[in-house]
Amino acid sequence: MNSKNMPADGPVAGPSGIVLPITAFSRAVDRLIGWFGEFASLLWTVLVMVIVFQVVLRYVFGLGSIMLEEVQWHLYAVGFLLGLAFTEVHERNVRIDVLAEGWSQRTRLWIELLGIVFFLLSFSLLVVWFSVPFVATSWEMGEVSAAPGGLPWRWALKSFLVTAFLLLALAGLGRLTRVWAALRAR
């Protein structure tokens, strides 16, 4: 893309406008998150089919199914949770860079470093810390859906909170190594 002023294999600015090299660790992390993201991305198509199935079942055959209703938001929840880290590594999270666009790369790198450590990493690790007992309680109580004929194993759905925020923390760590490498390189 920016091949004019960059070596072909050199770092390129992502959508965030920050130029970062890739580290071995970040490459591995991004690949892992990519698998989860690809999986989540398939769920939307499945969700479409489930909704169509459910509507046909009810409208044409007069059969309502609370189970199918719950399958819908289970798929949706897993989809968006697993996609959080995926979106982060694709730098698709919204930034207000009206002012930041004009700052030096070095300033932006330092902001990025502090942001990752104090905001993204502390937040996602804290969420992991809180979600583990949240899931465990649900598992111990054998929590099932409160709806008649709903889905069992509510803990299984809730456990995706842990997975999602672990992945998000990994995404943060991966990016941290890249930011660190960029700062060291200067």
Binding site: I96, L99, R108, G115, L120
Partner: peptide, 10 residues
Amino acid sequence: LFLGYPVAWL
């Protein structure tokens, strides 16, 4: 907000 870091994590 104006630091240019993702709004969600801010």
